[in-house]
Every structure is written in C-alpha cells, then in structure tokens.
Design a protein around this nucleic acid. Sequence first.
DNA 1: TTACTTACACAACGATTGGTTGTGTCTGGT
DNA 2: ACCAGACACAACCAATCGTTGTGTAAGTAA
Lengths: 310, 310
Amino acid sequence: MAVTETGQFQAAADELGISQQAVSKRIAALERHLEVTLLVRTSRGSRLSLDGQVFLPYAKKVLTALERAEQAVRPGSRPLRIDVLNRRIAPAQAVYRFYRSHPQMNLDAVTLSNENAAQAAQAVLEGTVDASFRALPAEQLPAGINAERLLDIPLELLVGPAHPLADAPRARPADLAGHRIWIPGIRPGTEWAAFYHALSKDFGLSIDALGPNFGDEALMDALADSASLATLVGSGDRYLWPQTYDLRRIPLHDPTPLYPHVLLSRSGVQHPVLTALREHLRTAGPRTPDDVWVPDWVTREQMTDLTDTP
Amino acid sequence: MAVTETGQFQAAADELGISQQAVSKRIAALERHLEVTLLVRTSRGSRLSLDGQVFLPYAKKVLTALERAEQAVRPGSRPLRIDVLNRRIAPAQAVYRFYRSHPQMNLDAVTLSNENAAQAAQAVLEGTVDASFRALPAEQLPAGINAERLLDIPLELLVGPAHPLADAPRARPADLAGHRIWIPGIRPGTEWAAFYHALSKDFGLSIDALGPNFGDEALMDALADSASLATLVGSGDRYLWPQTYDLRRIPLHDPTPLYPHVLLSRSGVQHPVLTALREHLRTAGPRTPDDVWVPDWVTREQMTDLTDTP
DNA sequence: TTACTTACACAACGATTGGTTGTGTCTGGT
DNA sequence: ACCAGACACAACCAATCGTTGTGTAAGTAA
C-alpha cells in the first residue's frame, strides 16, 4: 500500500521508517507467498500489476480490520459496549436491530458471565461495560447508575401439541394456575428468579425455576412430549424454537405479563451511540397492550420514561 | 481463536501444530500489545474475558480478510476478474450495479493498462482476465474468444452554458456538423479512435480526438468557457461532471449513437458469475431507443445476442 | 492430609525472520 | 558513452518465535 501511494520503494520506505531494501524484501516475500507479481518495476518507479490492482483493496481491508480490532478493546476510545444478558433474548435482538438500522454506530454486544443484576450494575459503574439490560428492583439501584425502562417484552406460553392449551388462541395468566411451568436454569438470587417469583405469587402459578439448564434441546424435547409441561418465553425470541418440534406459542393477555428490561448506564455519560439507542428503543419498540402486568417492584419512576414519550 | 474453540491452550496448540508454551507466549504477547486480558485462565481451561468476547469477532474478521486477500490473487480458484476499461465509464458502473444486486457473487473489476482491444482479447485468451468490455470490430476477433454485445450506451453531448446548443432539449448528430467536438486522450489504434472515426465519417463531424488528456478538470474548464467546444459522453457516467461547472447534457437522437460494449470471454468458460453477469446485463440494461446508430463494423451477429433475448 | 493430575507460565536456548549497510544491475535521459 | 534513478542481491546482526525443560497453582483422588 505504501508503495502504491507513493509510486516508489524509497518513498514508501521513508513513510514506513525503514530502508528501501527492507521494502524490497517485504514486497518480494509477499509476492513469493502469493505466487504472483504485485508491482511492475520500471526505471521511474513502480506501479500496480493487474494482480496488484485486484489485491490492493483486499489488503486495505486486512489493515482496516486490524485497526478496528485494536480499537475494539483499547481503553478510552473503544466502541460502546452493551451487556445484553444473553444473546438469544430480546435485548440482544433489539440491539442488533438498532445496529442494522444504524450501521455507522460503533457498538459491541457482550454478555456478562454473572447473572446477578447488582453485579451488572457494579460493572456499569466501573466502566467494564457502558450499559446493561437488566430487570433491576429500584431499591437495588446503586448511586450513580441511571436506569431507564426501555424494552417491555410480552411473555408467551410455549407448549407442546399435546398440551390442553395447545390450540387456544390466547390465555390469561390466571388460566395457568395448576399447570406446571418449567423454566430451567434460573439460579436463585438472579433477576429472573425475582421476576418469576413475583409472577407466580400474583397469579398463583407453580413455576418450577429450579434445576440445571440442560440446554434448549432438552427443554424442547420435554415440552414436545409432555401434555402438562409448559414454559414462558419472550414474544421476540422466535428463532429459538425450530419448526421440527411443533411447539405452540400462546399469547398471554388480561393482563399481559411484561418482562421489563431496564437499561442501566452510568449517570452523566452522554455517549452519542447510547443516546441514539435509547431514542431507537423509545420509538421503534413494539406497541405494548393496554392491560399489562409487571412486578410490583418496577417503580413508577422507571415507567415514566416510557409513558412520557410522544 | 483456536483457544476459544477448544477451550484450552494444549488443544489449541495441537490444532495449530505448535507447543502449548508457544500458544501461551502468543496470547501473552497479544494481551501485552492490546493492554487488556483476553482470556480468563482457570484450572480447567480458559474462556473469554469480556474484552476477549468483544475482540473475537474482530479477530475473525482479520483472518477472513486475510483469507480473502490470498484467494483474490491465487491462480485457480480466484474470483471472476473483469476488465472494465476504465473505472469512470459505463461498464465499471454496470459491473458495480451487478455486484450490488448480487453481493454473494465473487468478482473483481480491473482495468488493463493498455487500451488496445486486440491486446485485451489476448489477455482474455491467456486467462489474465476472465472477461473484458470492449468495442471490437468483428474481423479482429481472435479464435477462441466469445463476444457478446451486452451494453449499448447512448452518447450525449456535453457543452458549456455559452454553447449554441446549451439550451436545446435534444440534438441530432447531423446538427453537430461544423461544431468542434473535442475528445482528448484518444490514442490512434484504440477502439475509441475507431468508434469516433466511424461516427465523424457517417455524420460529417469534425472530432478532434488528438492531443494528450490533461485530465477531466482541464476538459471541464475548457468546455465551461467555450462557446464552440463540445464533447461526447456516455449517458451513464453522470458523476464525472460536478455541478459547479454548469455543464449541460444534450441527449442525441434521430439516430441515437450507441457505444457498443462487447463482453469478451474465452469460449467454453462456464463460470457461474459470468453467466449471471450476462443475464443481468441482458435484462437489467436500459431500454435503448428505436432509432440508433452503431459503427458499421458492429456485426449483425454481435447484435443478435441482444435482440434474441425475450 | 497427601499425592497426583491438569493447565498454564517462566526460563534458556536455537532457528528463523526482518531489519541494516554495502554493492550490483538495469533503464532512461543527457 | 556516461550518469542518475530505482530496485535487487549479499552479508551480517538483532529481534522474534519456536523449542524443551521446569515451575506453580488449582482441582481431584486416595
């Protein structure tokens, strides 16, 4: 690249801060490796051969990819880093949709390995991540953390074909009383546990949130074969359930339970990408039904941010 | 990447064919360079840290970019390579549009440095390029070369605001008799010279095709200031002429001169991308006017390919 | 607790690589 | 014919990257 920019080896060498002979050796080694001639040497400099012409844009891509890779982790000027809890659920998809509609926005989605909301808030405070989607009770909110409820995901019931509600067009949470609902892999003390505990208490459900998560495959197998087992999923994460299992999604209403994702960020940060993401979530979010349920520990204040938008 | 795939240094080392210690040193050097920790070492292996999680996709991009760069020039399985004559004219734009609408198609656009159509045909025969857009007289077509007229570009007159035809909605070629038409940088013996020679002969024009090309800037300067000078441009290459010069494009009709771009390729090659490009040009090409002019050395046979399409 | 296994890091050393300086060859202009 | 410019080749040196041997920490089994 330096040679094509300057037209001759010596100038490229000056630009790179090495000797002309070193440039010559580098080019020769590259040509030997690729088994083609990249540069046509003349007595008045060098210009690209046909292969060089083709190769140049690819070489540029390699260098920009390297540059980006370093930028991505170098502290200080790195892209906005957002914890999306888990790559398979709504926040990850919302962030991905945001990125698709704003490709120039430089951001990275990560998943913090701990599932504890308080620890996530700590990570946001420390700057390990710039923002995190969580369902955080208001009283657990540390000082210096800004929380805004920006993504309410309606829950749906997921059942196998033999389940009594399999062909119901919709169901009410109260209809689920007595049915077994299994949500594996929820560890005590996490925000998930708190949410489902509140849900089961308010509607008299028996939610089995214990036991290890043996993976989506095992869950789907169990659901498909059982006439009594059901689970709850966010209405967004369709991709999770392949057609082969013939599982049914039953929307819940009257009221619709909402999983309230709150975006945590450090108070005072004014990162433009973060601002744009907030704006995107406020406006591009799905219309929520009228009659909804959220855990009682979701404060009015957190809700205000949502209802205030035009 | 090898460590994250396998979960531990030793397995990564086996995959890479080096020792565990070498992997350790590589990772340590990378972490030292980036000034972050990429891997969390545990007693049962290693997993990605948060920074590592962010870095991994960027690292993958670097490797795929490297892979693509090598593929682009490695003889044998390289992308289809098409000579577009010049990056600023219709064939280049047509190829670019094709690529935009078929992003999965792997192709490279190049410009052969010689402007001689016979030499381009030779390059196609030798496989230096896979296809070339040229305006090649039928009798010059070497054996083994397949030629298909796929891109007819109507010519337009480009004049400055003081030119007598500046405000004409359109003009006939015969109207140009007596006007000075200057097309700089056309060297004798090239296909351009042959085309404009035929055009001037058939309509009695005085085309000044001699003199060196001092660049588009110089041409535009001359046109903008002159009341008599004009040039001919393809109707596609709009971008060339910035608004600042207030140049006017006057479409030609009765008949419309067409610059016939013939796609040369080696007989017998059945490259899928080339087939798709041909199909794209046949169907997505602009509607040509009814009353057209092409040089008389453009054979009926070359035209058949165009008129045969549904 | 003790011993063992697993997994990574450190140290010393040799081979390879990538740089340097010095010199040679080719081309185009004077 | 000569000279200047531009790149290549050769010899040499230093830094890098690999190797083998060994150390340390953490989990596991007796």
